[in-house]
Design a protein around this nucleic acid. Structure first.
Length: 440
RNA sequence: GGCCCUAUCGUCUAACGGUUAGGACAGCGCCUUCUCAAGGCGUAAAUCCGGGUUCGAUUCCCGGUAGGGUCACCA
């Protein structure tokens, strides 16, 4: 596809809920398409439904796109464009394409009069950039309602008028809009609008292969931001849901994605939102963070400044999202770098397999004696390992090292005892070990 | 139910008539190892079914089947 400077695309969310993952991806595809072709990316808030739209949801939408880095070139609100729609409505009525219809009031809130589109009852065919030709017989649509009144336009009217007025060249949206397209084309023909190019992208599905909805857990984009996903990982993952560039590489920045983006490679079938893969992307991006930046993130997340590189690496290797950092480092609000209180009530957790408590005690005493010959400055994992390894091997590594590690960390699972001692330093390490001798 | 869309490993996908059907995630196994994590190596796993077209179909066509979307005075 050659570069077209007249590319103008839009994402048109309705602020009736927090910005949904599906809308975020549609926004991302529009953004990538715009960047690829040097076009214009527009956000249009579809808030014609005054009863359901709120400023809070609009703010969530703005926050979400801002987080994703989808900077927009133009921004509109349909609620501020009532006069525009009114003018089109009046012209459509004058031209005989629409009419005021008297209605039987069946429910509360229903109007006695609405504006309906005069359906020409024809077959409409359009070409979808992803799916090819799609045809509909619009007869079954009847004379559908396009506005409650001249001042209260409905979705189909507002969309078509805006896409026309804003000179939208390509409409890239979810597959759930395919069935809306014939209605919109009919209105385009009535107001004399040029036909935009359509691309209906596949839906994002939940595990049961249904359209992802609020019931499926975290569907708000900001949920992922708040859990501590890295934005680059998230957009990378999102872009790969229903699309894939050539080659086997999967890690791409948003700029690279934009360069590579090709709408004709977009998948036709829906894709399940698989958080396992998202987590993998996030871990890959965590590996790419510089040490300085990572230390800063750890401090932001836990309130603890850690400068020890070994310690930072331990944290980095053990987290999936930044939100995991605090749970790794603190318990009940207390700082414990993998080091929690030891459960002495259950001694069997401290003793390795077939060792006895007497043997374990003996090992600990001996280890303490070995450690005491070191200065605190010599307390590095390497030195400590060298000092203890032969003894541990002689007595059985598990028998010696497991209790030491457990006493130092208070957990079944933790970094190795040498690294732990390096982090704890000499004094704290010895205090914990001596304390254990009395309690075993 | 009507209309519309879709169909490759469990998941995301590659292939644009000719491949031992490739990669990634997840899984499993082994190595490393006191545990966990990380890492290394390896393994299993797919073209929905049936007809065509063709020398040859994952690929093109038709029909089934299955799944999904949509049928508002919401968007």
């Amino acid at each position: 596809m050659k570069t077209n400077t007249d590319v103008r695309v839009r994402i048109a969310p309705s602020p009736t809920g927090n910005l949904h993952i599906g809308t975020a991806r549609a926004g991302l595809f529009n953004y990538l398409f715009a960047k690829k072709h040097g076009g214009t990316f527009i956000i249009r808030v579809e808030d014609t439904d005054k009863a359901r739209s709120t400023k809070e949801f609009e703010q969530n939408m703005i926050d979400s796109f801002t987080w994703l880095g989808l900077t927009w070139d133009e921004f509109y609100r349909q609620s501020e464009r009532t006069e525009v729609y009114k003018a089109y409505l009046q012209k459509m009525i004058a031209d005989g394409f629409a009419y005021e219809s008297q209605e039987e009031v069946k429910e509360e809130g229903q109007r006695a009069s609405v504006i309906r589109f005069k359906n020409p009852n024809k077959v409409v065919t359009f070409t979808d950039m992803i799916r090819g030709d799609i045809s509909f017989d619009t007869t079954e649509l009847g004379d559908f309602v396009i506005a409650k009144s001249l001042e209260e336009p409905l979705y189909h009217l507002a969309v078509v008028v805006d896409d026309h007025e804003m000179r939208i060249s390509h409409i890239i949206r979810g597959e759930d809009h395919i069935s809306n397209t014939p209605r919109q084309i009919l209105i385009q023909e009535a107001i004399g609008a040029a036909l935009p190019l359509y691309a209906h992208i596949p839906l994002i599905l939940s595990k049961d292969r249904k359209k992802l909805s609020k019931r499926d857990g975290a569907t708000a984009l900001t949920d992922y931001r708040d859990k501590g996903y890295i934005v680059g990982a998230f957009t990378n993952f999102l872009a790969f849901l229903g699309w894939h560039p050539e080659g086997d590489n999967e890690i791409y920045s948003i700029e690279e994605l934009a360069n590579l983006f090709d709408i004709s490679r977009v998948q036709k079938g829906g894709a399940i939102f698989d958080t396992d893969k998202l987590d993998w992307f996030n871990k890959e991006y965590i590996k790419l963070i510089s040490e300085e930046e990572f230390a800063q993130i750890v401090e932001e997340q836990s309130g603890i400044l850690i400068t020890d590189k070994t310690f930072l690496t331990l944290i980095r290797e053990r987290i999936t999202v930044f939100g995991d950092i605090a749970t790794l480092l603190t318990k009940d609000g207390e700082f414990g770098p993998f080091l929690f209180d030891v459960e002495y009530s259950d001694i069997s957790k401290i003793i390795w397999k077939d060792s006895t408590s007497a043997q374990t005690k003996e090992y600990i005493i001996h280890v303490i004696s070995l450690l005491e010959s070191f200065d605190d400055s010599q307390f590095t994992a390497e030195n400590l390992k060298n000092a203890l390894w032969d003894y541990a091997t002689e007595k059985g590594r598990g028998s010696v090292l497991w209790p030491i590690r457990y006493i130092l960390s208070g957990q079944d699972r933790s970094p190795d005892p040498f690294t732990l001692m390096e982090i704890l330093r000499k004094e704290k390490s010895l205090v914990r070990l001596q304390d254990a001798i009395e309690k075993i």
